[in-house]
């Protein structure tokens, strides 16, 4: 682990991982992960398949307990802090005839884990309307979710994750099934809403380029290890070469960044692959 951020302020950190290691089937999926994220920052998580991105998300969500190390959200054990972590899943493809309106989906983010049923109420309704307005989804609030486009659904999922006022929101490959324009829209929207609400964003993606304009720091994962810092600090030939364990070149063309592998190129992420 190379934490390139010189200032570590644990007092106001939203997410703290110390010495986290995970072994699955005799293999170290993650090891020696130390990281600390600040309130309101936008962190992109990049890395090749099998680098441990999904495992990292599961740990932060409290769905997987690390074999070593500690995970804290806002200074509390992750399992006691579940309400502080919002989540946007990788895939959500509802049936076209699902009897669920946009507002119903968002409302589940507010109280879906509670027992019983809700009798509605003006405050709950107002809260849902507010969350819909954050993502500019009020005009399709009463549409069935199965009839919405991928971009419209993605905005609802963001609202669903943010409505419970989390301190941190995790987005698992939210750009995977979107065209380039929608990718840009989703990234801009997440960046804006999170900034306004002071929520830390952890966004996992294959391609760092759509994030370059909004990302405060990048968490680069490879071989179960991580490098955290600004793009200029992390996405460099020497840093990535050490992370990958073999020679890597970083090329900048027309404002885009390409990560190019050497002899062992197959194990590299493709910095330009879209989706």
């Amino acid at each position: 682990m190379r934490n390139l951020d010189p200032v570590r302020t644990h007092e106001d950190s939203v997410l703290d991982l110390q010495g986290v290691a995970v072994h699955l089937g005799g293999r170290a999926v993650l090891h020696g992960i130390d990281l600390s994220l600040r309130p309101g920052e936008f962190v992109g998580v990049i890395g090749p398949n099998g680098a441990g991105k999904t495992t990292l998300l599961k740990i932060i969500l409290g769905l997987l307990r690390p074999d070593e190390g500690t995970v804290q959200v806002a200074g509390r054990d992750v399992r006691a802090a579940r309400s502080l972590v919002g989540y946007v899943p990788q895939s959500f493809a509802p049936d076209p005839d699902l009897p669920l309106r946009a507002r119903d989906l968002v409302a589940l983010g507010l109280d879906g884990a509670r027992w019983g049923f809700s009798l509605g109420g003006a405050r709950r309704r107002a809260k849902v309307e507010e969350a819909l307005s954050w993502v500019d989804a009020l005009h399709y609030a009463d549409q069935p979710v199965g009839r919405l486009s991928g971009g419209e659904l993605q905005r609802l999922l963001v609202a669903q994750a943010l409505i419970s006022d989390p301190r941190i929101v995790l987005l698992d490959e939210p750009l995977a099934n979107l065209d380039l324009r929608s990718q840009g829209d989703v990234v801009a929207l997440v960046g804006r809403v999170a900034h306004v609400r002071g929520v830390t964003v952890v966004l996992v993606t294959h391609d760092m380029n759509p994030l370059l304009s909004v990302m405060d720091r990048i968490l680069y994962l490879a071989r179960g290890q991580a490098a955290l810092g600004t793009v200029d600090e992390v996405v460099r030939g020497d840093v990535l070469t050490q992370l990958y364990g073999h020679h890597v070149d970083v090329v900048r063309v027309h404002g885009r960044i390409l990560v190019v592998g050497g002899a062992d190129a197959e194990s590299l992420t493709c910095g330009t692959c879209d989706g």
């Binding site: 972590v85 989540y87 989906l105 589940l108 879906g112 884990a113 019983g116 049923f117 995790l170």
Partner: peptide
């Protein structure tokens, strides 16, 4: 069903998110 309504509904329509949020 009255008791389970919300978690069961959430787990039925969006199991990934529901699980991440403790269902």
């Amino acid at each position: 069903t009255a008791l389970l309504y919300r978690p069961l509904l959430w787990s039925s329509v969006a199991p990934d998110v529901a699980e991440a949020k403790g269902v």
